[in-house]
């Protein structure tokens, strides 16, 4: 156990990269859950991981490969005739099979697989940080533009679905975010940060605004805890990060509704 590592400048960039993703992924997860697409994160993550490993074999930069594969996975999702959990599960299986096949047959892909599956956050660099900042910045802009349409489609479906441009922009942002995240945090830690805080916030927050803050608070707290523990215990970030998210979400206090509401 080496506490001094926490203050090593070497880990500042990785910490910031993960922090940006820990802020952004739960927000994205809330909107995916709103649309009934939470499993799509895992489907896109697995497809993106296969693409990233394929990119490594072709000699592409890791971040470019991940983001590009994420965008392709988003287009695959967008193009589904009948989006459903079953379709996302099929994406997941296809992505996993392709990733393992590529990894098993090429040494370069085997190295990259360590980053994708274990979550080698501590070896990320400036490119990862720039990509995380980009998906956060673009993603916030897309959500500011599409927020009302996405929520309205859920509570007033008779007013019509969001326009095609909104759906495409949202899917592309989701895909690129997942592609960047899996190369920094790992597949399952990325999924955990997108899924668990949103799951908890949906059940416990008093409002949408409250859910956004609550999900981000759970995610960032869990991320910092996971980062510190993984570094100090010399473990890959992925499994420690997942455990931290589950722990923090489980300990997050429930929202107490005000007396006198909901009678009748």
């Amino acid at each position: 156990m080496n506490i001094d590592l926490l203050f090593d400048p070497l880990f500042r960039l990785p910490f910031l990269t993960g922090l940006l993703l820990a802020v952004w992924l739960p927000v994205l997860g809330l909107y995916l859950r709103l649309r009934g697409e939470w499993l799509a994160v895992l489907g896109m993550a697995q497809l993106a991981s296969a693409g990233a490993l394929g990119g490594a074999v072709l000699g592409l930069p890791a971040v470019a490969g991940g983001a590009g594969a994420g965008l392709l996975a988003a287009l695959a999702k967008w193009g589904l005739k009948r989006p459903s959990d079953s379709a996302y599960a099929a994406m997941l299986l296809l992505g996993w099979a392709a990733a393992v096949a590529v990894m098993s047959n090429h040494p370069l892909a085997e190295q990259a697989a360590g980053a994708v599956f274990d979550g080698q956050l501590y070896f990320t660099g400036g490119g990862h940080l720039a990509a995380a900042a980009a998906v956060l910045g673009i993603g916030v802009q897309v959500l500011l533009w599409s927020h009302r349409a996405l929520l309205r489609a859920r509570v007033h479906p008779a007013l019509g679905p969001p326009g095609a441009a909104i759906r495409l922009a949202f899917d592309l942002v989701a895909g690129a975010s997942v592609g960047v995240a899996i190369l920094s945090l790992g597949v399952m830690a990325s999924f955990a940060l997108a899924f668990v805080p949103a799951w908890r916030a949906f059940a416990t927050a008093p409002s949408w605004r409250g859910a956004l803050w609550r999900a981000m608070a759970i995610s960032v707290t869990a991320y910092v805890l996971g980062f510190v523990l993984a570094l100090v215990l010399d473990q890959p970030f992925g499994p420690v990060g997942v455990a931290a998210v589950l722990l923090v979400a489980g300990l997050a206090p429930p929202w107490r509704r005000r007396a006198g509401r909901g009678a009748g």
Binding site: L34, R148, L151, R152, R154, V155, H156, A201, F202, T204, A205, P206, S207, W208, R209, G210, A211
Partner: peptide, 11 residues
């Protein structure tokens, strides 16, 4: 769905 009445009206 974590949505308040005020947020519903705003939509």
């Amino acid at each position: 769905l974590p949505l308040s009445g005020r947020e519903l009206l705003a939509l």
